[in-house]
Design a protein around this nucleic acid. Structure first.
Lengths: 198, 198
DNA sequence: GTATTTCTAGAACGATATTCTAGAATAGTT
DNA sequence: AACTATTCTAGAATATCGTTCTAGAAATAC
């Protein structure tokens, strides 16, 4: 027997799933409340009850997706036993995730830019910051041994994942000049060169 | 005496300037036609006459800004006499431009993502592609001498400017942990390591 | 001097995000 | 079991948005 809680979370998930496919098919700014309503069979009131407003729907989906992505990256880091495996694994795992979840990745890039989630800015920064702390913690031993170059914390974000993000945006935009598998190697190699002491 | 052409281009520029400041202050998706109208003192009809639709206004501004940015990068490349100076100059010049034009840079990042300029997608790709061809032409001699690593063309975009873009987004978002001058050195060094043959 | 093009103006229209009121279904309490 | 409170859904109503449309003014071309 379905409790109210069950049907409620089902509806919640249906709204988020409808939003993701709507964004994938028609783009973010054409994903209207009534479009979500049509695809999820939820009423306007139901959507606003669960998420507050349109931005709230996007934010909830945003966090859901990042939670999954970060879990993959975390697992990759944890099973790495050398600095090289860890750094290259981070890049490759991220790009593998993008290839496996193109709709989710596109959504992330569409939503993270701009002012769409401006009112959730602090919450998102905190959420991402917590994960970057984990990455920093993993790197610390290798920083001490001199295997990885010591930089201000903010710089690792740009140097480690900047190239992968730039490529992913391009790949998701339809410019798939090379398979993701080949791109992974090229980008991972470049990042590995960049992160070692000169 | 002001001709019709003069007042027309003045109005055009006023609309674009109003759009830029509106986006800087309130964000892209809150920059409405009536907001632009209010700041530029242009009528609805005038805006639509000059730019077709809201997307057209954004596209015109987008191209204007990139034209300026590319001009800086082109000048930087042309006066470089070594591979190292050229590559590092590209990164530093770009970040200098971002620091000098934060409103323009923010606009670029807000507008290039998502489906906002979807109907101008091909024109934008062609515009950017032409500049990347120039960069490739500059690199060619150094690729032949082995000073720069040989990669598929698409990879240079990700590896050369990916870190700078990632940092710029963060810096523009208000997380200015370090001065741009210091960031330039760190990122330029990293990119220079990444782009050399291993 | 007339015709044509360019440009501006603003009312009108359909669609949008959001709010609001009302009620149904479930959970909690005694 | 009965009553209350809470959660959830429903959909009409509202204000605002992007866009279209018609009309006319101003400059230019012939």
């Amino acid at each position: 027997m379905a409790t109210q809680q069950d049907t409620s979370t089902e509806r919640r998930q249906a709204i988020l799933a409808a939003t993701l496919t709507a964004v994938a098919e028609r783009g973010l700014h054409k994903t209207t409340i009534s479009e979500i309503q049509r695809r999820s069979a939820a009423s306007v009131g139901s959507i606003y009850h669960h998420f507050g407003d349109r931005e709230g729907v996007l934010y909830a989906l945003y966090i859901d997706i990042f939670t999954d992505c970060f879990a993959q990256l975390r697992a990759s880091l944890q099973q790495a036993t050398t600095a090289r495996d860890g750094i290259r694994g981070l890049v490759c795992t991220y790009l593998t995730w993008v290839e496996a979840h193109p709709e989710q990745a596109s959504f992330i890039y569409e939503a993270s830019q701009g002012d769409l989630l401006r009112s959730y800015r602090d919450a998102i920064l905190q959420f991402k910051g917590a994960f970057y702390q984990e990455v920093m913690a993993w790197m610390r031993p290798y920083l001490q041994t001199g295997e990885l170059i010591i930089l201000p914390p903010w710089a690792y974000d740009a140097i480690l994942l900047g190239p992968a993000h730039e490529f992913a945006r391009r790949w998701l935009g339809g410019l798939q000049e090379l398979t993701m598998a080949e791109a992974q190697i090229i980008i991972a190699d470049a990042v590995w060169r960049a992160i070692q002491p000169g």
